[in-house]
Structure formats: structure tokens, C-alpha cells
């Protein structure tokens, strides 16, 4: 059990949770993630480490409600059953900033993809980098943690599908018109966004790091649920990733593999909604 300081709604479909997890944050690095379980019988959910305070042993998480298990997570108060981590590898640039000195870096984030982007940009700023961010979502109300991000970037540009904030259109539109300004791109967001970013950067031969978020169970390399095709070979995102060289990722396969448990998950969600509904009727 871990103490939950707060678990609050920050947009129409996203929540921010602050947890006491000293052993997780003692050595964690931007790019790594944790697996959480609301209760002892809950599903294991991988979530990115979005912010941390090593001295106080605090860990910040952001999650979007997309199914029964994330819905259940919103009910967590005071205590959460399990927070396992840090898992996966640190972002390559953060791991060795000196190797990237002088490089012009652009982060492209989509939706909750801003959660893994934020700690990286913050870390790089602390290490003397001026990093640009392009951040997109469907509409203005779904843009998260803007205040925090704006404090650590050199320049941030927004894109929304409906034009309610920033440029109307996609993050790739903004990246396309500024592509000459960058030596390295890091893209984190929906698979389709990362795929589109890589299609663009490939044309200009700009190295691009992406962060894969496949289905996971254990997060320790034991089940293979998280396998992605990298350079024609299967790799486990939880131990070999989650970040990979975007040019080598088979995005089409990743897109298809995300739907493996769609029906089962839908069923569980319906069941859970019914249960919640049932509970309310009793009150």
C-alpha cells in the first residue's frame, strides 16, 4: 500500500495522482514508467513517471480514463495497492546529455503524451538545454499541465484539431513548417501521431525517438504482451524500451496489436458501469 496525497480530475477525461513512493523515485529517470494497481484484484496499468521529488519521495502520475481499469483508478483515495517501478529505460538524451550538447531538440507531444514529455524537457532544461515543444490535442480543454510545461521549455506551440487553441490542425503541420530548425525529434503520443511524425522526419533524415505504449502485464519482461517489431525483430517495450528509434518501429503492427483485448475490455467496462449504476440505485 502506498499513500495517495491526491487523485484529482484535471480535464474532462484525465486525472492527476500524487503518491508517496520513495523507492520508485530514488533513482528514477525521465522516460521510465511504473505499473499501478488500484486494489489487490485490479488490473496492472502502466503509467509514465510524469514528475518526481526525490527528497520527499513523491511521484506524480497522469492518466486518461479509457476503460474499466482507469475508471476504477479514479476511485482511489488515500491508499493505492501497488506502484511498481521504475520500469523500462531512461530516455537516451537524458541519460547522457553531454553527448547531445549543441543539438537542437524538438519534442512533439499528443494528448496525455505530454506526461512523459514534461520530465524530459524539465531535466534537459536543468542540464542547460533549450528545448522546443509542439503539443497537440483534439481541443483546448484536453491540453494538460500547460503551466508546468511552459516553465521549462524554450518555445511551445500548440495545435488542436478543432482550432480551439493554437494552430488548427495537427502537430505534424507545425513540425513540417519548422523542420529545418531541428537536429533531433522526440515524439510521444498516440501511435498514429508518432507514425505520422516519423513519416515526416524520415524524409529529412532527422533522428526521431518515439515512446511505445503497448499492452503490458508484468512490465518485467516475463510475458511478452508488450512486444513491438523493431527493425524487423520482436522487442519487449517494458525492458528494451519503452523508447525506440522511430525509424525502426513497425507502427502499423503496433496499431493492430492495441486492439487485442478490445472486446473483453468493453465487456468489463459495461459490467463495471452496471455495477456502479447498481450501487447508486441502492443509495
Amino acid at each position: 500500500m502506498y499513500k495517495v496525497v491526491y487523485n484529482k480530475k484535471i480535464s474532462s477525461n484525465s486525472y492527476e495522482m500524487l503518491v508517496e513512493a520513495p523507492l520508485v523515485v530514488e533513482k528514477c529517470m525521465p522516460g521510465q514508467f511504473v505499473i499501478v494497481m488500484a486494489k489487490e484484484d485490479s488490473e496492472r496499468i502502466p503509467l509514465t513517471i510524469y514528475d518526481y521529488d526525490r527528497e520527499k519521495g513523491l511521484l506524480w502520475l497522469i492518466y486518461q480514463v479509457i476503460g474499466a481499469s482507469t475508471e476504477e483508478l479514479t476511485t482511489v483515495q488515500q491508499k493505492i495497492f501497488s506502484v511498481s517501478g521504475p520500469l523500462g529505460n531512461a530516455n537516451e538524451i537524458c541519460k547522457d546529455p553531454d553527448a547531445y550538447k549543441g543539438k537542437r531538440i524538438c519534442y512533439v507531444a499528443g494528448g496525455v503524451g505530454i506526461a512523459p514529455v514534461y520530465p524530459q524537457v524539465k531535466y534537459l532544461q536543468e542540464h542547460g538545454f533549450n528545448v522546443d515543444v509542439i503539443y497537440g490535442s483534439r481541443s483546448a480543454d484536453l491540453l494538460l499541465i500547460r503551466d508546468k510545461v511552459e516553465k521549462v521549455v524554450s518555445k511551445i506551440r500548440y495545435a488542436t484539431d478543432d482550432g480551439s487553441f493554437g494552430t488548427k490542425g495537427f502537430v505534424t503541420d507545425i513540425l513540417a513548417s519548422n523542420i529545418e530548425d531541428y537536429d533531433i525529434v522526440v515524439a510521444i503520443g498516440p501511435v498514429i501521431m508518432m507514425k505520422n511524425v516519423v513519416e515526416l522526419t524520415k524524409k529529412y533524415n532527422i533522428p526521431t525517438i518515439v515512446s511505445m505504449n503497448p499492452l503490458m502485464v508484468d512490465g518485467s519482461g516475463m510475458c511478452g504482451a508488450c512486444r513491438c517489431e523493431i527493425d524487423g525483430k520482436p522487442k519487449f517495450a517494458c525492458i528494451h524500451g519503452p523508447e525506440f528509434d522511430g525509424f525502426k518501429v513497425n507502427f502499423d503492427l503496433a496499431l493492430k496489436r492495441m486492439s487485442i483485448y478490445k472486446e473483453e475490455e468493453q465487456e468489463k467496462w459495461e459490467l463495471m458501469k452496471k455495477r456502479l449504476q447498481g450501487g447508486k440505485n441502492h443509495e
Binding site: V24, C28, S82, S84, G85, P86
Partner: peptide, 8 residues
């Protein structure tokens, strides 16, 4: 919940 190699 402790991945040795990463946490310690």
C-alpha cells in the same frame, strides 16, 4: 513492486 536493477 521493486525491480532490482532499476529501483536499486
Amino acid at each position: 513492486d521493486v525491480p532490482i536493477g532499476n529501483a536499486l
